[in-house]
């Protein structure tokens, strides 16, 4: 499926019943050089809106919220040794975690790419 977006600048992309979550390219640019990422462990249950991960740049720290509810199945371990991946490739290899969704219907409340682009444009 195509990506969905939150107002907190996370993207989520569903394949089968597992979704991948990351932060948007806009978000990484706002943060600046990412220096540290903490991703959740597999098995953790998260509810929509919970703190799921942390991303830090030199001057800012930000929580990454679960865009939907579900169970974390994998954190992106590559980010631990190479947090710069978030800057270089936020949309793809810089993903944060994968999760099994509790209710796929929750995705309907999120923005599609066009809506998110318009949302970001408004912020600037």
């Amino acid at each position: 499926m195509s990506k969905k977006f939150t107002k907190d600048h996370e993207w989520i992309s569903l394949e089968g019943d597992v979704a991948t979550v990351g932060i948007t390219d806009y978000a990484q640019a706002q943060l600046g050089d990412v220096v540290f990422v903490e991703v959740p462990e597999a098995g953790r249950q998260v509810a929509k809106g919970d703190d799921a991960a942390v991303v830090e740049s030199v001057k800012a720290a930000s929580e990454v919220y679960a865009p939907v509810s579900g169970e974390v199945v994998e954190g992106n371990d590559a980010l631990e040794g190479n947090p710069a991946l978030v800057n270089e490739d936020a949309d793809d290899s810089g993903w944060f975690f994968k999760m099994k969704l509790a209710d796929q219907g929750e995705l309907d409340g999120l923005m599609d790419e066009a809506a998110y682009t318009a949302y970001v444009k408004e912020l600037d």
Binding site: D33, V35, F36, E56, V58, P83, A84
Partner: peptide
């Protein structure tokens, strides 16, 4: 100017 990114990474 000092490289704060390097220091933190």
């Amino acid at each position: 100017r000092l490289d704060e990114t390097l220091a933190a990474r």
